[in-house]
Structure formats: C-alpha cells, structure tokens
Design a protein around this nucleic acid. Sequence first.
DNA 1: CGACTCTTTGATGGAACTCAAATCTAGTGG
DNA 2: CCACTAGATTTGAGTTCCATCAAAGAGTCG
Lengths: 222, 222
Amino acid sequence: MLDASATSATLQRLPSAPTAEPTRLRSLAHLRRFDREQDIYGQEERSDTWYRVMSGSARKFLMRADGRRQLVDIYLPGDLFGFTSRLHHRFAVQAVTEGTVIACYPRQRVEALAREDSETALEIRRQILEALERLQQQLLVIGTMTAQEKVREFLLYFHRRLSADKDEGMALPISRYDIADMLGISPETVCRAITDLQARGVISLEGPRRIRITRRRGGQNG
Amino acid sequence: MLDASATSATLQRLPSAPTAEPTRLRSLAHLRRFDREQDIYGQEERSDTWYRVMSGSARKFLMRADGRRQLVDIYLPGDLFGFTSRLHHRFAVQAVTEGTVIACYPRQRVEALAREDSETALEIRRQILEALERLQQQLLVIGTMTAQEKVREFLLYFHRRLSADKDEGMALPISRYDIADMLGISPETVCRAITDLQARGVISLEGPRRIRITRRRGGQNG
DNA sequence: CGACTCTTTGATGGAACTCAAATCTAGTGG
DNA sequence: CCACTAGATTTGAGTTCCATCAAAGAGTCG
C-alpha cells in the first residue's frame, strides 16, 4: 500500500554481522533499511530472495477476504526467512520496528553456493529447521484452549525468544493487536488476560510494552 | 479401506514435486510396520532417525502436564518427518492406522550422503520446506476465530492433503478427538460443527468417517 | 499542547466448554 | 448370523468464557 516507492530502502554493503553467519553467505548479502509497516515482501510476490533480520523486527501475515489479518510469525534479529517450496509467497512480511535492517540474499546464488559448499547447505538446513521449530512452538501456544493460557504461553515463548533475563523485563516490539491476530483472539481479550495475569502475580508491567515475568510455572524451557 | 485410498495416493501427493524418493536415499531405508497407537518415536527420544510414511498415517503430538494432548501434525503417505535441530525430540509420533508402514533412515548416513551429494541435500531441504508449509497451513486453520471455521478449514485442508477428488468422499483416518486436539477445541464442538456444516450443505457424510465436500467457498487451493 | 494511536475497562449477547446420556459403529465370539 | 461389547459419535442442558460494541484513559510524537 505505502510501498509504491519501495526503494526508499537504502542499499549498502554489510560491514559486520551481529549473529553467527557463515562468511560465504555473508558475501552474497546486501542490506536494506525499512520503515515501520513497510513491506519487505508482499503476498503473492515471487520468492526469489532470502532474508535475515539484522536489527529490528518483522511480522509475517496474511490478509483474509473478510479483512481479518492473520499473523503467522514474528521475526527477530538472527532469523532467516523468505524460503518456500513454492514459486510465489502466500504471506506478506513487513517491518514492525522503525528502521529495521534486513540482509537480502539472492536465492539463486545462495542455492548455487549450497550446491558446491556442503557447509553452507548444512547451515541453510539448520536455519529452515529453526523456522520449523518456531512454528511448532507457535502451534503449541495457539493450540491451548483458554485465551488466558494462550496469552501466558505466548509471553513466556516470546520472552524466551528475546533471550531476555527472567528478572529484567522484556520490551515487546509488537502491539496487543499483533498478539491478538497471532493467537486468533480479540485484542480486548489480550488486554484482559494480561491484566488478569498481572493480578495473579504471573507477570508485572512497567509500561504497556515492558513486561516482566514474575512466576513461571509449568513452562517447558527452550 | 482407509489404507487402500491412502496407498494409492503415495506417488502423487506432492503438488510441485513429481519425484517420489531418490534412489540414493531409498537405499538407506529399512521398513517397519506399526500397530494402531504404537509409538514410532517417543517424546524426549534421541533424534537419530528420519522417517517417511509409506502407507497408513501417524500423529505427532505432545502430552501436557495437565493431561491434555496437543496434536501438532498428521503424517500421510509421502511425508518425511523426524528431523529437528535439537538432539532430542519434544513430541511423540505414533501410528494412527493399523499396519502403518514407515521407512526409517539413519540420520548420520543421510547427512553424510547429503554432504557429498548436493542433489540429496536439495531433496532434503525441499522435504523440510514441505513440512514447514504444512505447519503454516495448520497455523492458518487454528488461527481462525470460530470453531465452525476451524473445522471447515481443517476439513478442506485435509481433503486437499489426501488429494481426494472433490466429488468422491474422503476417508478420514483420524477421530473427532484427534481433530479436537489438533484445533484446540472440544470433541463435542467438533461434532456440532460437522453437523452444522452438513445442515448448511457444505459437506455431506456417508458414515462418520467418510466426508464429501459439497461446496467449497473461499478456499485457497494448494 | 493537541492529535493520534494504543491500551484498558465496561456491558451484553452469543459461542463454546463441561457434564451427562443416548445413539451409532465396528469388531468379537457364540 | 446375530447378540454382545467397547469405543466412537452425536445430542442435550447449564454455565462459563469470549467477541463485540462502546468509551474512557495512557502514551507518543509533531
């Protein structure tokens, strides 16, 4: 929508990677910077590029015919995404945080590299498996029955992913609406669940976007 | 009866890939037969084997502390499973259909083969991507809001996966309980939803396990 | 400061879970 | 072949939970 002039994103060389990234792969990447809500790729777009979050965050989602938005995944620094067995994407991915920096890898060249370098191939396999594990975790969260559980599981899961310390609060990059669209419940219910969890002493808020996990019971660690 | 339709689907299930199983990979496999409800691998088991359904079906699930069973995926003929980036599994997989036949591949040897044969490596990558797509689809199904939608989406999705003809009914290998544990709703609600869908003319039943899709509106095809 | 978005809270009708029981199905053995 | 059994499926009644509509508070950024 706003993405008509998608090339407000800046092209530049990659100076150094924050996360462990094989040198061979890194040499194929170029960096782009995205504004808040800006599309990284659109629904139905050709899947000829792979991406990695260098900083910031992004949401993967699908717009339904009835106008509902379904969130499928949140990408955080270090996450590789954009691969599919299809020719075209079925979801869109857009930046959540202002100034999100994404490394872009031309798919053809990555696959060519993988063909001749088994180490790269292994790394790619590992990254796809990571995405798989994330989706499974996500399924476990959404698969719980009550809304309260969903929100609690989601917060624990997200806290783990942000690899934040238990004692220091985590800074949620996403809104209540994002959480709602991710869990298949209404934003108001997310709010009420958070309020209840706070009342029960499971979490404590220091500002709406800063959440501290106080008590973690029955949580299976990652 | 269920087996008959399932087995005939073996070689034509994958939409984008006509390839059944590379000869190189096949040579590493040995076949095992499983009874109904028998574990193919258990929760917390070491992940040193990959599997492929040759005939029958299997469920991947996790038992929660409160006794609730959460289903994450259903494996049908042609599906490869068992890979993870972890050392141990976090889910169990057990046969659903009596006499399910599974091909087992020693992980070490598969990965060794992948290291020296880029074609095999590509095939593995493709298979993992298939699993990823399946989980995404599953997330879309569960992420819908009403139970009615969930059940309808699930039936359409499963119908697609069984690559059954629209006009001929599909033979559900799984129970209402399985569907419920997959969608995070109660089995009674699954029943009522199916009854309602039947009343609305969306589906028609010829026996509880034989479902025919009558009308498919708004369904995105695979 | 003021406009905007995000978050929270309230009230209400409808949806879904639970407990309970009836019906159906498939499989077993007489 | 049929009665019988165990399991699966369906239906009913009552209660809880959640989506929805509405509006008020909080936070943010110009």
